[in-house]
């Protein structure tokens, strides 16, 4: 299982890199400039796929955590850890590209845009998840505690989402924040979906690689103990 996951991971990561590279080519050379927002809008093709992956990763964290708590399968814990580490990387990308785009496009780092706000909250949940893992006396408890944080976080995300969007509805920004632009050109959509695919593959590859490394590490620990 381990070697296979490792090769799977390398394969996926490579595929991810290739597709992402292709996406970048599309971003810089193929897709037309969005009319209303200009060249800066191209950050969107990095920003949105990263956000998608950040939340996908957390979904994996939550499900794996639930499996770990109820079935006690160590592999589920490793999956959760791998997904979380990948997820937080992409969350960071979102939180950097978002304000960057905001500053360049609308001269404001933070516009209270609900998606970005939600991703920021997600970022905190990720941080809490990873901190808790390493903060216990015994590693077993750390895994269990992290799983609890992951599950609770996931269960509250819908409510947080609703509240943030509702809040936004109360204070609409004069800036129209439709990243696809008023007209969703087919080229824009294509670039976006290719980007989504590329980033997802990249994430899955990284996750699989991390998984195989951690799995090997823990199996070694087990052998030493015997």
């Amino acid at each position: 299982m381990n070697a296979r996951t490792g090769w799977f991971g390398i394969g996926m990561a490579l595929a991810g890199v290739l597709v992402s590279a292709y996406t970048l080519w599309m971003v810089f050379f193929w897709v037309p400039t969005e009319v209303s927002m200009g060249i800066v809008q191209r950050i969107f093709y990095i920003h949105v796929p990263s956000a998608w992956v950040a939340f996908l990763a957390f979904g994996i964290v939550a499900v794996s955590s639930a499996v770990y708590l109820w079935l006690g399968d160590e592999r589920a814990d490793i999956a959760a850890l791998s997904a979380a580490e990948g997820g937080i990387i992409f969350t960071t990308i979102v939180l950097i590209t978002g304000p960057l785009w905001g500053k360049i496009a609308w001269n404001a780092y933070w516009t209270g845009e609900p998606r970005l706000t939600l991703t920021l909250v997600l970022g905190f949940i990720y941080v809490g998840y990873l901190m808790v893992r390493n903060a216990t006396d015994t590693p077993e408890r750390g895994k269990r505690f992290a799983a609890v944080v992951g599950i609770v976080g996931a269960l509250f995300i819908p409510l947080i989402h609703m509240s943030v969007y509702w809040f936004r509805g109360l204070h609409p920004d004069p800036v129209i924040l439709n990243p696809e632009g008023p007209t969703a050109d087919p080229e824009i959509q294509t670039t976006l979906y290719v980007g989504l695919l590329g980033f997802t593959l990249l994430f899955l590859g990284l996750m699989a690689l991390r998984y195989s490394v951690e799995r090997a590490h823990r199996t070694l620990e087990l052998r030493e103990a015997a």
């Binding site: 909250v121 997600l122 976080g153 947080i160 943030v164």
Partner: peptide
């Protein structure tokens, strides 16, 4: 946990947004 109470805000505050 070893960090104790200081960890509580980090875990709690994101969920208090709503």
């Amino acid at each position: 946990t070893t960090l104790g109470e200081s960890l509580l805000p980090i875990l709690l505050f994101p969920l208090l947004v709503p």
